[in-house]
C-alpha cells in the first residue's frame, strides 16, 4: 500500500524526467561527443589533454565566484532575516523590490554601474569636486573588486530568495520556545534559526556560485577586460569555431562544480543531501 502510494506520487516527476532526458541529456551527449573528438569527428583525447593550459583561468574564476558567493551570503542572510520579520505586506513589497532591478537588461545595468564607478564617472566627479582634484580618486572599474561587486549586485536576489522562503516558513513558536528556554535573540538566531534555514542557504549558495563561475559579461565590462574568466574562454572557443576545446572545458567545469556541490551537501545536514 505504502509502496503503491509513493509510486503514484513518483509519477508526478514523469513529465520532468521525460523533458530532462530529451532536452538535457541529449544535448549533453552532444557536448561530451564534441569534447572527445577532433575537428574531423575522430575520437581524440587532445582536447582534454590541452586543458592544463587553462588551470590559471579556472582558478581565478573559482576564486572570484567563491568570494562573491560569500559576500552574497553575508549580505543576503541578514537581509532575508530582516524581511521575514517584517509585516506580511511589507515582506511581499521588499521581495519584489529586490527582484525589480533584475528586470532591466543586464548589459544596460552594467553600463550604469560603470557610469558611476568609472575613472570619469559620477563617484569620481563628486569626490573630485569636493576635494578639488583633477585625477580620479578611486580606480575601481578594471579591478577584480569591481567584478566581485558586479556579481554580488546581480546575483544577490538568488541568495535572498531561497533563504527568505525558508526562514519565513519556520514555525513562529520556535522563537517563543527558544526565548522561554533562555535564549537571547542572537542565540536564537544562531542555534535555532540558522540550522533550520540550512537548506535555503545551500540552495542560495548553489544559485549564486554556479552563475558566478560561468558569467562573462560582468567580468568583461567591469573587469576592464584585463583578465579572463572561464566563461570568456569558452565563449571565444565557441565563436572562433573551436567547438571541441570549448566543449572539453565546459565538460570539466561541469564535473568540478558537480563534485564541489556534492561535497558541500555531504556536510550540510542530514537530509539536505538531496537538494542538489
Amino acid at each position: 500500500m505504502k509502496n503503491k502510494k509513493s509510486l503514484m506520487s513518483s509519477i508526478m516527476a514523469a513529465p520532468h524526467i521525460f523533458w530532462a532526458v530529451l532536452f538535457i541529456v541529449l544535448p549533453l551527449i552532444i557536448v561530451v561527443f564534441y569534447a572527445f573528438t577532433d575537428a574531423n569527428g575522430n575520437f581524440s583525447f587532445s582536447n582534454i589533454a590541452s586543458l592544463g593550459d587553462y588551470a590559471p583561468i579556472f582558478g581565478l574564476s573559482l576564486e572570484l565566484a567563491v568570494i562573491a558567493t560569500a559576500i552574497c551570503l553575508l549580505i543576503g542572510y541578514p537581509l532575508a532575516y530582516i524581511i521575514s520579520k517584517a509585516s506580511p505586506k511589507s515582506q511581499k513589497f521588499f521581495m519584489m523590490l529586490l527582484m525589480l532591478p533584475m528586470w532591466t537588461n543586464l548589459l544596460i545595468r552594467t553600463y550604469s554601474i560603470m557610469a558611476i564607478l568609472d575613472d570619469g564617472g559620477f563617484l569620481n566627479s563628486i569626490f573630485g569636486a569636493v576635494f578639488n582634484v583633477d585625477e580620479p580618486l578611486f580606480h575601481i572599474v578594471g579591478t577584480k573588486g569591481a567584478v566581485i561587486f558586479g556579481m554580488v549586485y546581480d546575483f544577490l536576489p538568488y541568495m535572498v530568495l531561497p533563504i527568505y522562503t525558508c526562514i519565513s516558513k519556520i514555525d513562529k513558536h520556535m522563537w517563543e520556545a527558544a526565548s522561554d528556554l533562555g535564549c537571547t535573540p542572537i542565540q536564537t538566531l544562531i542555534k535555532v534559526i540558522l540550522p533550520l534555514s540550512m537548506s535555503g542557504i545551500i540552495s542560495g549558495v548553489t544559485m549564486v556560485l554556479v552563475p558566478s563561475i560561468s558569467t562573462f559579461y560582468i567580468s568583461q565590462k567591469l573587469g576592464g577586460g584585463t583578465f579572463e574568466v572561464i566563461g570568456d574562454t569558452i565563449e571565444r572557443q565557441f565563436v572562433t569555431g573551436a567547438l571541441n576545446v570549448g566543449a572539453a572545458i565546459s565538460l570539466i567545469m561541469m564535473i568540478l562544480i558537480l563534485i564541489s556541490i556534492t561535497v558541500m551537501n555531504k556536510f550540510s545536514d542530514e537530509d539536505g543531501g538531496i537538494i542538489v
Binding site: 509513493s6 506520487s9 513518483s10 509519477i11 508526478m12 516527476a13 514523469a14 520532468h16 524526467i17 530532462a20 532526458v21 538535457i24 541529456v25 549533453l28 557536448v31 548553489t206 544559485m207 554556479v210 552563475p211 563561475i213 560561468s214 562573462f216 572561464i230 566563461g231 569558452i234 565563449e235 565557441f238 570549448g246 566543449a247 565546459s250 567545469m253 561541469m254 562544480i257 558537480l258 556541490i261 538531496i274 537538494i275 542538489v276
Partner: peptide, 28 residues
C-alpha cells in the same frame, strides 16, 4: 515526485541531471 522517490541513487541521478543547465555556462 523527486521527494517521493525513495531510492537514493535514482534521486541523486535525477537531481544531478536537472541541474545540468544551471551548471553549464549559458553558451554551452
Amino acid at each position: 515526485g523527486i521527494y517521493k522517490i525513495r531510492n537514493k541513487y535514482i534521486k541523486t541521478a535525477i537531481t544531478s541531471v536537472t541541474n545540468v543547465p544551471m551548471m553549464n555556462p549559458d553558451i554551452v
